[in-house]
Simulated assay, not measured.
Amino acid sequence: MIKAAIIGGSGYTGGELIRILSNHSEVEIEFVFSTTRAGKKLATAHPDLLGLTEMEFTGTVNPNVDVVFLCLGHGNSSKFLDENTFSSTTKIIDLSNDFRLKKDAVFQGKEFVYGLPETNKVQIENANYIANPGCFATAIQLALLPLAKAGQLDKDVHINAVTGSTGAGVSPSATSHFSWRNNNVSWYKPFTHQHLGEINESLKSFQANSGELFFLPNRGNFTRGILATAYTKFDGSIEQAVKLFKDFYADAIFTHIAEDPINLKQIVNTNQCHIHLHKHDGVLLITSAIDNLLKGASGQAVQNMNLMFGFNENAGLMLKAGVF
């Protein structure tokens, strides 16, 4: 058994980590840190834990844990590490965007590895520090990386992706509260979303001359999940495209190519990414779907932890969607 700590445990990603790790056969949660809820039971922030644990949030840090998950707002992970020291053997998995880009990957002598298991599995297995990918970034990279590796991503790509309200975090805002979000859809940050940086770095590591990405993110009137559609010119047949994707993900236990069109319900509450391909008049349409809180955040963080500690990659993550 390894001992795990969750920093920022009162939010959505922290709650999902508590749920997963509580049922992980190789992990014991040592403490859950929160500056706003110290001394209160975990169930006060996460009612789904009522009756499952009597653990309380803490406002102090035990540095002698095996792994730390940082579930803090963007820009706050680096501040937390400046103010708190962990054992030299403690592995760190950061769920913010503080260390995802190459220019930010080294911090206090710690070298953070980009934690996308489908492409960086060997590096993750040998890493002590992981920068967990963003949710949109995960869905879009998994939709496009096979094309980049094959040198088939030289044309511009148009991407439209819609995310659930949990992608905005637990604190209410003008565009996340029920009255505004219900029966409503809107776009935000058109062509400038912060995840484009990490997406482009990953794609260009396979194909330096990859085309420009035109990304339009949307807010959906549902709780969780991301459905992303990307289309670009493709000279090959649909059969060639399917083979290209299946070959690329042959060893990926959580990413699968679907024969039929996909929808959000089949992946919500799982660590899966489902991908569907469709071709029309020389244009290849790639649809990908993930749960933004699991494969797009906490589930992928646990997947990375499993690889770092030599556990089965799917340990604690055999979760079934509720499709009805």
Rank of each mutant, 00 (worst) to 15 (best):
D104A: 05
I159G: 10
K110P: 04
K3E: 14
T119D: 02
K204P: 02
Q207N: 13
N120I: 00
V170H: 12
A230D: 03
K233C: 00
V67S: 03
L317D: 03
F222M: 11
I275K: 05
I262P: 11
K155M: 04
P172S: 06
S25G: 04
D94S: 12
F57E: 07
I124P: 11
A228M: 12
L42M: 06
H256F: 01
P146V: 06
S202D: 02
W180H: 13
K91R: 15
N182I: 01
E28M: 07
D104K: 13
F191D: 14
G316K: 10
N84Q: 10
F215P: 04
V27K: 03
L147V: 08
G211N: 10
V106I: 15
V68N: 00
Q152D: 11
N126A: 13
A297T: 01
S22I: 01
V170K: 15
I159T: 06
A228R: 04
T90L: 08
L116E: 10
F214N: 12
T138W: 00
E111C: 09
G211H: 07
I124Q: 11
S25Q: 14
L216Y: 14
S237N: 05
N209P: 01
T192E: 14
A127T: 09
N160C: 07
H74E: 08
S288I: 08
P217R: 08
E56H: 06
E201S: 10
A139S: 14
L244G: 01
S22C: 09
L72P: 09
A137N: 03
V68K: 02
E26A: 14
H278K: 14
S171E: 14
A105S: 15
F248M: 02
E56V: 11
N200L: 13
L227E: 09
V268W: 05
P217V: 13
T13N: 09
T232N: 02
L72S: 07
G282M: 06
Q240R: 05
L42D: 01
R181H: 08
T138N: 07
F107C: 05
I253R: 12
F234I: 06
V65W: 03
P190I: 12
Q266W: 07
E313G: 03
V67C: 13
S176P: 08
A228E: 03
V268M: 09
N304Q: 03
T270H: 10
D281Y: 11
G75S: 03
N314V: 13
F57T: 08
T255A: 04
G11W: 03
G51T: 01
F31R: 09
P190N: 04
V27L: 09
A148I: 11
P47A: 10
D66H: 08
V61L: 03
Q240K: 12
G51C: 05
V170G: 01
N314R: 11
W187M: 12
I286E: 11
E118A: 14
T89R: 13
V67Y: 01
K204F: 00
E313W: 05
D281W: 02
G316E: 08
D154P: 00
E54N: 15
H280T: 13
Y129W: 07
N183M: 11
V185I: 14
T60N: 09
P146H: 05
V283Y: 08
F99I: 01
V283R: 07
V323L: 03
A161D: 10
S237W: 06
L81T: 01
D291V: 12
K110H: 08
G151W: 02
I275N: 06
